[in-house]
């Protein structure tokens, strides 16, 4: 089975042009034989939105999504955007589109608001980690900072996720690594770790391009359930990365390392209750 990761270059605040280019990539992914096409965090809007957050936001029933819904009849998509709720709260969300409909939504839970990040000032945080059925089987979507809190991955793991779609707009920083920014190296480590600890496929899809001197660090990759990086994109180029994946490896990895079988959520819960009550 083939999976397409699109290392996308967004136009900051230009929803319509990003939709057009997303559709183009999805069509190319379809032609290349991919079963699903995954885009980075906020690929339809760009990342450093600040007050643009409120201009680019769309409701789930927005007609602006129609071209994406149409192409999802040919190939399922994961896209990133600002979602406006009924109550006019704004979420950094990822939509899973398939067969002309929104089948699943993940709202980013952890909003980095420190250093170069200011998300908590503009967006509301989600509060659910869930799974859904993708062409690859039980899957979960997490967005960037969500992955820096390992509870999110743990919750997806317990709910049967075999694939983790990690969407990111990671801006490059650090000059202590070779051939990539330090943050890109950290993401590779994170992916290897999570894939191995959950016996799952880990798909990391990051942006490229520049926003006011923030140079996105690319290096999107796929890690197999044994923790091996099996495909990796470049640091700077917009790329359609088509990767062969073999869901049978999840079974194989989980027989070799039966961590899910031995997991003790009851113990976790008991301890969480104790910790919270103390």
């Amino acid at each position: 089975m083939k999976v397409a990761l699109v290392q996308f270059r967004s136009k900051l605040g230009d929803f319509d042009s990003n939709v057009d280019r997303t559709v183009e990539f999805a069509e190319k992914a379809k032609e290349a034989g991919a079963s699903i096409c995954i885009f980075p965090e906020l690929n339809l809007t760009g990342y450093n939105l600040q007050d643009l957050t409120f201009d680019v936001a769309v409701r789930r029933d927005s007609p602006k999504l129609v071209p994406l819904l149409e192409v999802s009849r040919d190939i399922p998509l994961v896209v990133g955007l600002i979602e406006e709720s009924e109550e006019h709260l704004f979420y950094n969300s990822a939509f899973y589109l398939e067969g002309g409909a929104i089948r699943f939504v993940h709202r980013k839970i952890y909003l980095p608001t420190y250093g170069m990040f200011d998300e908590g000032r503009f967006t509301a945080s989600g509060d659910r980690v869930e799974t859904f059925e993708s062409p690859l089987g039980r899957s979960s979507i997490l967005i960037c900072e969500d992955l820096w809190h390992f509870s999110t991955v743990y919750l997806a793991f317990l709910q049967g996720a075999k694939c983790i779609f990690a969407l990111s707009s990671s801006s490059g920083w650090g000059y202590r690594e070779k051939e990539m920014f330090d943050d890109a190296k950290v993401w590779l480590n994170v992916g290897e770790f999570y894939a191995r600890m959950t016996g799952s496929y880990f798909f990391y899809v990051n942006r490229v391009g520049v926003e006011d001197g923030f140079v996105f660090s690319g290096t999107s990759f796929v890690c197999d359930p044994y923790g091996n990086i099996v495909a990796k994109a470049s640091s700077f180029e917009e790329e359609l990365l088509i990767v062969d994946v073999n869901p049978a490896l999840v079974r194989s990895a989980r027989i070799s390392l039966p961590l899910l079988r031995d997991e003790k959520p009851g113990v976790v819960l008991k301890n969480l209750r104790r910790i919270l009550d103390e």
């Binding site: 136009k11 900051l12 605040g13 230009d14 450093n48 600040q50 007050d51 643009l52 520049v210 926003e211 006011d212």
Partner: peptide, 8 residues
């Protein structure tokens, strides 16, 4: 608050 690269 808008980036300079707004719309670019």
């Amino acid at each position: 608050l808008y980036f300079r690269d707004w719309g670019l």
